[in-house]
Nucleic acid binder design. Structure first.
Length: 106
DNA sequence: CAAATGACGTAGC
DNA sequence: TGCTACGCCATTT
């Protein structure tokens, strides 16, 4: 079968992503901090980029610190993230989300 | 094993 | 508002 080397660190990051409520968003940096890994936002992105297509992890609720979707405009993933967020009631305009309104603040 | 890469963030200009 | 420079670090070349 496949080898999915889930490390302790990765497991914590996935747990945080899974805990982001529907209708809300979080940022790569926040997810890293909440997982006890401050300064490793980049690692969060690297991890999500390796998710298999069709993963049930709500990766689309994670955006960058500027409230923008981290994909080239109109790309397949950009379109998917936008529509899935809007389906949950998150307003996404021009690839941007108003963090003051939707940011998940535990 | 050295160098490049990347779904990032912050600071500075 | 935008760009550059760094810092960060697992992965891939």
């Amino acid at each position: 079968m496949s080898d999915t080397p889930i490390t302790e660190t990765a497991a914590r990051i996935f747990h945080v992503v899974r805990s982001v409520p529907a209708g809300c968003v979080s940022t790569y940096g926040d997810v890293a901090r909440l997982a006890g890994l401050p300064g490793r936002a980049r690692y969060v992105g690297t991890l999500l980029s390796r998710l298999p297509t069709g993963s049930r992890l709500p990766w689309f609720r994670v955006i960058n610190s500027q409230g923008r979707i981290s994909f080239p405009e109109q790309s397949p993933l950009w379109l998917e993230q936008t529509s899935r967020l809007q389906a949950e009631g998150v307003s996404v305009r021009e690839g941007r989300v108003d963090l003051r309104q939707y940011r998940w603040c535990p």
